[in-house]
Design a protein around this nucleic acid. Structure first.
Lengths: 261, 261
DNA sequence: GTTGTCGTGTTATCATACAACCCTGATTGA
DNA sequence: TCAATCAGGGTTGTATGATAACACGACAAC
């Protein structure tokens, strides 16, 4: 049998632990917005670490907008809406259903992005998409290079909207989806899939090239449905069309298996 | 005249400056993924700060997934896609066009969310929306309470999709939009606006209540168009309907004024 | 060739000290 | 009485030095 040695839990820095601990206090309401945190010294002693570690934790929370601090006064819990970062922690990602939910969000974004891209794309955007497609053609299905170009294609589409936030959000969500897939560990490959996937991408590109917004979003919808079934998401409905009151089939089956330790 | 004192410029901690500096090096490609950063000591001397400050900066970048470090080896630039957080810094927010772009993204999300919510809402969701609407009715237009309930309504809609990520993303984007509005400082109030806005919300709620996905997204589209014009975004087209190849009017006029220090 | 050991360089953590700043309350002066 | 000023303690921000944990290459021992 092959040893299943993992990256091992290279201890996540004390400051990370402290930050998570405080973060949890906030998330669970034991520390409400406006509350003052204990002093750094107090935190240091209660956690049994040096003040320095506490400061690194606080620096982190501050950069996330969860708390704010003022010299001479103290540190305070910020309003929840003040969070300057959007983060999806790894734990959440592994919960059943989160995969499906993330995929749905991604679909929602992509379908509309495709339509927008079709109306705004520049020649450079088209070139970027074609280059990514070429990269996929030469790389083996599922390889790192393949995935990279796959993501690159979708990013190129997003950037064709001429709205930088589209790409930013899409890449972020897509990466979470990918992580979620990896965590679930239920991917299987075949040559068929490569051809199918490529074909779907080509249809998207063709529609965008033609400036056909409707066609682009339809092609994207098909692609996402295909992708969903390829990664074992039953149904593959991504609820992409606001016009059609999608019947909501409730499926309990969800990502269950995950890579064991 | 009322003084326009800003939060500024409450010294952006040295660690923040260092973090931004390193971050910029990465963003501009002078530090590529895989590259090793200078040692903490070296960074400390080049920046002219203590090693402690450098460590806080690194802790922050690490939490953002921009770099990773290992005891005994050093700190390295992470892959761009490894960013575990999505962040929109304040500088970017003030750039011309970012307001419009953010608004567009928000619209894209909300319109589809409204449709989904109409098909999936539970009684509790409806109650939450009605409560938020009540809050808006009793609060003066534009007040903190009003804004809070406004956001609360939209969040309730998002949560009615039964997909937690929807709410998370929407709130995040909406808050950025709000900040952007504040930064631009071009909001004006009137009693008319309060009535109009409330009416728009009520129509959204009615459609969701009725399970009318199409109507909900249409009502949301109207609401967003109205909101856009109320905050001085000309056109008000939020490119919400993938079916209609939205004509892309290019407007140069954008956020110019900003609160002077 | 493999293993064990050591030395060097780096990060992780600790401990202490001082500066900058806020807040409060007492003192002072009118 | 009232306001301004000032002193002191408490807190965060920064600096400095030291130690532990770890990675890695060099080198000797077997």
């Amino acid at each position: 049998m092959t040893l299943k040695l993992d990256k091992v839990n290279r201890g996540p820095h004390l400051s990370t632990l402290v930050a998570s601990s405080i973060s949890r206090e906030i998330a669970q309401g034991r520390l409400k917005p406006g509350d003052q945190l204990p002093t750094e010294q107090a935190l240091a002693t209660t956690f049994g670490v040096s003040r320095n570690v506490v400061r690194e934790a606080i620096a982190r929370l501050r950069s996330e907008g969860r708390i704010w601090s003022q010299q001479g006064r103290g540190a305070f819990v910020a309003d929840a809406t003040n969070a300057t970062v959007l983060t999806i922690d790894y734990e959440t990602l592994q919960r059943a259903g989160s995969f499906r939910n993330l995929f749905e969000l991604r679909g929602m974004l992509e379908v509309q992005i495709a339509a927008l891209a079709a109306t705004r794309r520049s020649d450079a955007d088209i070139a970027a998409m074609e280059q990514a497609l070429d990269g996929m053609r030469t790389a083996p299905y599922g390889s790192v290079a393949w995935l990279k170009n796959d993501l690159g294609f979708h990013r190129a589409v997003a950037e064709a909207t001429q709205n930088p936030y589209m790409g930013q959000f899409l890449v972020f969500v897509s990466e979470r989806v990918r992580e979620s897939i990896l965590a679930a560990g239920n991917q299987q490959k075949s040559d068929d899939m490569a051809r199918t996937t490529l074909g779907e991408h080509e249809r998207i590109l063709a529609a965008i090239k033609a400036g056909d917004a409707k066609g682009a979003s339809a092609a994207m919808t098909r692609h996402l449905a295909g992708a969903a079934s390829r990664v074992g998401l039953p149904g593959g409905e991504v609820s992409a069309k606001p016009a059609s009151p999608a019947r909501h089939s409730r499926l309990r089956k969800a990502v269950r298996r995950r890579a064991a330790g």
